[in-house]
Design a protein around this nucleic acid. Structure first.
Lengths: 216, 216
DNA sequence: TGGGCAAATGGCAGTGACTGCCGTGCACAG
DNA sequence: CTGTGCACGGCAGTCACTGCCATTTGCCCA
């Protein structure tokens, strides 16, 4: 961090949509305007090199207003994770009954991989984070949040009497690690993402079967 | 983040120890003085509430000097992860030949759990991070780095012809998720950490065996 | 059509995190 | 005793963010 501040959960998202949906709609316009201007600039000049003043100017709002929509530069970049989390938890809930935990993980991962990869912005964001450590950390900062969300979803899906929620938490972490590797493999090569996911799951089962390559 | 800066890999650690080890020794004294003063203050007043000026004052150095030793408040808190990573990679390398991947993970995790839990500071740091989102993110920021280190260690341990290093990366992520949950369970209860680790591994095998609790 | 209210915005000043630059004091070699 | 090299302190400047206040804008109602 350059000037220095503390990350904090943004106070902006989800404000009471009192006066009807039209207002909210307008806010969305501004929000996406800022967001898109920012990503454009990040991709062009780099995450840390881009100033909030510049983003605001590019989006046609004041700096002060930027902060009414996003808590920080990092927060802006992290918004994608919110959608990511939503996709995942939906996938977990929507998986057919009767599947085992790992199969549910796969179901959800598949869904995210295909639906998520469709967003054009994803490529751009992956590229930004691959060039800037700060950007990577901005994403990572949300990881705990997403993991908690997943743990809850798994807990709902596989209820247990244990109060420590061990299994759900483990599954949450596992899912994220899996997808992390998957996206990395995918963005490195140029094969479709489902291939990457297949490979990852193959590797996983190899590992857990303990039949993997022996030590030299 | 409050005032705002970008996270950056610190430029401080590992400077050329030219003039003999004595100099280095002296630097270590200052470094740990700052570090301990900081942790004390974090624990007392909170991570974000504590100012770098205050830390420097408490350690008896100037603010400018603080930044000669640590790149940021977050970096300071993240230093623990470096040691963590070292412990883990050593454990992976030191595990007896002939173990399967998951057994190596367990061996390394056990080692870290016991050795790591011995450090008195660990409790304090866990407590700090549990009270401050910013502190948590400071730790998390290092996670990618640690994961890469683990992946390398696993790759050395289980060589493969694949260029994508899928399996090692997966193992790295898995290990961290495992330990994450373990530490959380441990610090929540008051049983020895090896118990927590046992529980976690039990949960893991249950999951991968697909014999876990069925959906309702 | 003219208020009037409330939300959205812009501007401003202030704090804290960091960085580059420069001057000083101290330690050790010569 | 003098130079040289560090480590350190101080200072000024940038950027991220925040609280506060004044203005504008959109909209409902008279």
């Amino acid at each position: 961090m350059r000037p220095g501040h503390n990350v904090r959960t943004m106070p902006v998202t989800a404000r009471p949509p009192r006066p009807g949906a039209l207002h909210t709609r307008k806010q969305d316009v501004v929000r996406t305007a800022i967001s898109e201007a920012a990503i454009e600039l990040f991709a062009g000049a780099g995450f840390e090199e881009t100033t909030i003043d510049e983003i605001a100017a590019a989006a046609g709002v004041s700096t002060r207003t930027f902060f009414r929509y996003f808590a920080s530069k990092a927060d802006l970049l992290g918004q994608g994770m919110v959608r990511y989390r939503a996709l995942l938890t939906e996938g977990i809930a929507a998986a057919p009954r009767g599947l085992g935990p790992l199969q549910v993980v796969r179901y959800a991962a598949e869904r995210v991989a295909t639906e998520g990869a469709a967003f054009p912005r994803i490529r751009q964001i992956l590229q930004i984070t691959s060039h800037s450590a700060a950007a990577r950390e901005a994403q990572l900062a949300r990881r705990a949040e997403v993991e908690d969300g997943l743990a809850k979803a798994f807990a709902a899906r596989f209820p247990t009497r244990r109060r420590d929620n061990l299994m759900p938490r483990l599954l949450g972490g596992l899912t994220l690690s899996l997808l992390d590797v998957t996206f990395r493999v995918w963005s490195a090569g140029d094969k479709p993402i489902t291939n990457a996911l297949d490979d990852v799951f193959k590797a996983l089962t190899a590992v857990v079967d303990e039949k993997a390559v022996q030590s030299r």
